[in-house]
Design a protein around this nucleic acid. Structure first.
Lengths: 110, 110
DNA sequence: CTGCTATTTCAAGGTTTTTTGAAACGGATC
DNA sequence: GATCCGTTTCAAAAAACCTTGAAATAGCAG
């Protein structure tokens, strides 16, 4: 619950949502902070603050590569968040999400 | 995007998440504000503020029944939010969400 | 070492959210 | 119509969040 609220909070800001999506799309390879700042059109400093929020929410992680930092998704955590929402959606609305339960068994490590 | 950020924002608070889930589970029948306040363990006044946020996010709606107000989910909007998250999750991670795309065709009116 | 690049940290300030309790409102009951 | 109920509205205080720009850190290249 607390974790889910944190996750949703991380996605509740347009800049962060933009950044998060870019990171998701980049997958395992990841994206540098610089690329993210440019993509989102914000200052490095501001971006850094948002990345901190996203990181603390557990949805993404960083690794270093020389002087740059590369951000990657924690797919498992994202899957948990999706599952959380989907469960609410489906308990009581089975027609809407009939096939989703299988989703829970299909997670992969991150 | 903006809509999604709003939706996530609405779910980013524990009280609201609790309330939202109860409303989801109640489905078409709905729940009264009083029941929600008790369930969440907050004052009516505080609850009302949170319900306003949820309502403005477009995830739930109210109807009146005598002196009480009954809150129900807007399933379609919730489905959109799920879809949004799921799309991010799946673009680039097809193994994780392989069966989810069909979800998008299975929405129902609310 | 010096300087340059990529990025974060810090502190300050501003803005938005959240919480409170009191008061208002509209419907139902007497 | 007086009163009670369920709920919202309001205003004020408290807390959380965002943005900024300047300074710090850390790696790399000359």
């Amino acid at each position: 619950m607390e974790q889910a609220a944190l996750g949703f909070g991380a996605l509740s800001h347009e800049t962060r949502l933009t950044v998060f999506r870019k990171i998701m799309r980049a997958g395992t390879e990841g994206v540098t902070a610089g690329e993210l700042a440019e993509h989102a059109g914000v200052t490095p400093s501001n971006l850094s603050a948002h990345l901190t929020v996203l990181t603390h929410s557990g949805l993404i992680k960083v690794r270093r590569d020389g002087r740059r930092r590369i951000y990657t998704p924690i797919v498992d955590a994202v899957a948990d968040l999706v599952t959380f929402l989907v469960e609410d959606c489906c308990n009581g609305h089975p027609d809407v999400c009939a096939q989703l339960p299988s989703f829970q068994q299909r997670r992969q490590a991150s």
